[in-house]
């Protein structure tokens, strides 16, 4: 089966001359449709860079990225923007919301670019998503009037507005306390169950254990892959999975 995203021999470096550093060093990776994948690794290993490369937010030096059969690396600026708007959703560590807009407008922002005429329907959809994610009633609030956890849900609602095939998360729980982080992960798991592919970058073992596959990156290459298996929070407190993953990570770090 054709993967939803395929990265082939991707290289990406930063800096020039003697200060040049290869952050992605010929990395190849496949993400299947409907998968829930976590990318882990030490700081500076290239996790976030891989995420930005696979989502077309950043160009690659060599190699290529195929999304749903299309060569992302060959797309022009506008085509990339269209691809992100219509097929992808993003959740960042910080809420990345616009201060000028209230919460509802922030959620509507990407979809309204094309769908102004369907404003009423889109507003209805945003309201429904807000209800689902537990932030109903905050529509008209300024973003300064919501908590970090609430704002992250706003970010998730915005990501879901375009019915994306995949959601990219760059440390989506990194700035949250453990209660909020758990709620966000529960939400993402729910979204995943509806068939949406999710690719997360995380440092948090607790977060990674809730995914189906963990990729470990070291020095710009995939150093290993771990399959925690399907997680069912109703039957499993997750402790055993966390211990197993921690042991594997320790092993990887020694490699």
């Amino acid at each position: 089966m054709q993967p939803l995203i395929r990265g082939e021999n991707i290289t990406k470096s930063f800096g020039v001359g003697t200060e040049k550093r290869n952050v992605l060093d010929g990395i190849s990776v496949d993400i299947q449709q409907g998968e829930f994948v976590a990318v882990m690794g030490p700081s500076g290993s290239g996790k976030s860079t891989l995420l930005y490369a696979l989502s077309g937010m950043d160009s690659v030096d060599s190699g290529r990225v195929i999304f749903d059969g299309a060569n992302v690396s060959a797309l022009k600026e506008n085509e990339l923007a269209d691809l992100r708007r219509t097929n992808m959703g993003f959740v960042f560590q910080q809420p990345t919301l616009l201060r000028n807009l209230n919460i509802l407008d922030n959620i509507l922002l990407p979809s309204m670019r094309d769908g102004r005429k369907h404003g009423a329907r889109l507003t209805e959809k945003a309201t429904m998503l807000m209800e689902k994610t537990g932030i109903a009633g905050l529509e008209k609030r300024d973003i300064t009037q919501a908590s970090g956890g609430q704002l992250q849900r706003v970010g998730i609602c915005r990501a879901l507005m375009g019915d994306p095939k995949i959601i990219f998360g760059d440390e989506p729980t990194g700035a949250l306390n453990s209660t909020s982080a758990n709620e966000i992960m529960r939400l993402l798991a729910e979204i995943h169950r509806t068939g949406v592919t999710i690719l997360l970058v995380t440092h948090d073992v607790g977060v990674a254990t809730k995914t189906e596959r963990v990729l470990f990156i070291l020095d710009g290459r995939i150093a290993g892959e771990y399959l925690p298996g399907v997680y069912d929070e109703t039957r499993d407190d997750g402790k055993a999975r966390e211990e197993a993953l921690t042991a594997w990570l320790a092993e990887m770090n020694h490699v």
Binding site: N78, R85, L98
Partner: peptide, 15 residues
């Protein structure tokens, strides 16, 4: 920052 956010969510340079 705001420009980067909008670009991330699919707004083009022309937008």
């Amino acid at each position: 920052y705001a420009i980067a956010v909008m670009k991330a969510f699919g707004f083009t340079n022309a937008d």
